[in-house]
Design a protein around this nucleic acid. Structure first.
Length: 121
DNA sequence: AACTTGACGAGGG
DNA sequence: CCCCTCGCCAAGT
């Protein structure tokens, strides 16, 4: 299970490419969906090296905030791009996940299942 | 092999 | 809210 493995990385990018404009996913959420071998940290690492055609700006942290942003880039760039898509951020830089977080079609979990999946990682 | 550093997450103060 | 601590996993020194 190597983050440098092409297949491993492609599963992340493939999922991120499905996020509709104006919606977001979190690192941990992606790790849960991809399952075995994926954690929030590894997803973040993979996203750091994202390229061509991957809407990286639509992946934020579990608190609904944009992270430090890509090195070399302005910190507010990611938030700015999302606002262009219609995502609303509070004054403190947080967006409402209940409203903007997106889940793939057919993927649903009840609370207890979510907890157990979190604990597994 | 030991130690530090992240595009992370949860819980507590 | 912000800040700190821990658990987490992989990379770079």
């Amino acid at each position: 299970m190597n983050v440098n493995d092409k297949e491993y990385r492609e599963r992340v990018y493939g999922l991120v490419r499905q996020i509709p404009s104006g919606r977001v996913m979190t690192y941990g959420q992606i790790a849960i969906i991809l399952g075995e071998g994926y954690t929030a940290r590894t997803v973040g690492y993979v996203m750091h090296g994202s390229d061509d055609g991957v809407p990286w700006q639509r992946v934020i942290n579990s608190k609904g905030k944009c992270s430090t942003g890509r090195l070399t880039m302005p910190v507010n760039m990611q938030q700015g791009m999302l606002e262009q898509e219609g995502v609303v951020f509070s004054k403190s830089g947080k967006c409402d996940l209940n409203e903007f977080q997106w889940w793939p079609e057919g993927f649903e979990l009840d609370e207890s299942e979510q907890v157990s999946l979190f604990d597994k990682n």
